[in-house]
Amino acid sequence: MFKLRGHHLFCLLGYQGMGYSRDYVENMTQLHQTLRDQPETWIQLIEGPDQLCAKYPNSGEYHCHDQHITARDHVILEKLGLIIGQMIKWKDIEASIRNNVVPSDIQTVCETCSWRSYGVCEEGIQNILEGKGLRKVQ
Rank of each mutant, 00 (worst) to 15 (best):
I97P: 03
Y24R: 02
C64Q: 06
I106R: 11
S96T: 08
G85R: 03
L35T: 11
E61D: 06
Q107N: 15
R116D: 08
D37N: 14
E47W: 00
P39R: 06
R72C: 06
L31C: 14
C53V: 04
I69T: 09
L52F: 00
L45R: 00
Y24S: 02
I46Q: 00
G85E: 04
W115A: 10
M87C: 11
I76Q: 05
D105S: 06
R36Q: 14
C110H: 13
S59H: 15
S104L: 10
H32E: 10
T108Q: 09
I76S: 04
V109R: 08
E61A: 09
N100M: 01
K89N: 02
E26C: 08
A95T: 14
N100C: 07
L77W: 03
A95N: 13
R116I: 09
E94S: 10
V25Y: 08
N100D: 07
S114Y: 04
S104Q: 13
P57F: 08
S114P: 02
G48A: 08
I97R: 11
H74Q: 14
H63V: 13
S104A: 12
G81S: 07
S59P: 04
I76L: 08
R72E: 09
Y118C: 10
G81Q: 04
K89P: 02
T70G: 00
I69W: 03
I88Y: 06
T112W: 12
D105G: 02
L45W: 02
H65W: 01
T112R: 15
N100Y: 02
I84E: 08
T41A: 07
D23Q: 11
G60L: 07
L77A: 03
Y62E: 07
C121K: 09
T29I: 07
S104F: 07
K89E: 14
E61S: 05
N27W: 01
G85Q: 06
C53G: 03
Y62I: 12
H65L: 05
G48F: 03
V75W: 06
E111R: 13
N99E: 14
C53A: 10
R98Q: 15
Y24P: 00
H74V: 10
L80N: 05
K91A: 10
D66P: 05
T29G: 08
E61M: 08
M28V: 14
K55G: 00
M28W: 04
C113S: 12
W115K: 13
I106H: 11
D92W: 07
E78P: 01
R116C: 04
E78G: 11
M87D: 15
T41Q: 11
Y56Q: 05
I83V: 15
V109C: 08
V25G: 06
R36K: 15
C113L: 10
R116S: 12
I43K: 01
I97W: 12
S104C: 06
L80Q: 05
T29Q: 12
N58R: 14
A95L: 15
K79C: 00
E111Y: 11
K89Y: 01
H65Q: 05
A95R: 13
D73M: 04
T112Y: 14
Y62D: 15
S117V: 14
